[in-house]
Amino acid sequence: MNSHTCHYEYLDGNAAAGELSNIFTMDVTAAKGQCAHCGATKRFAEAHVYMQAPGIVARCAVCEHVILRFVTTRQRVFLDLRGMTCLILDTSQLIDSGQ
């Protein structure tokens, strides 16, 4: 992303929690993701999420490259995660609760 930008249009990653809970059984906002562009590893909750768009676009909080795109059409959901090299989900709560 170039230096001629301002940052006021986005929400944090928690804003996407509801939509993502429709397809993930675990809470993705608590997960850590590694940006495929800059390599930064951050909690998804820290991502910059753009919701005023034809879909949901989450961008790396460090370099602003797209890490997740999500579109709901009439009968399908499209999910693009190619901007993340790795998504790390914490299963400790599942183990503690015996799931």
Binding site: H4, Q52, A53
Partner: peptide, 12 residues
């Protein structure tokens, strides 16, 4: 309405 999929570029 303003829709955007990313930060607004400000290009000199």
């Amino acid at each position: 309405p303003v829709l955007s999929a990313g930060p607004t570029p400000h290009i000199p």
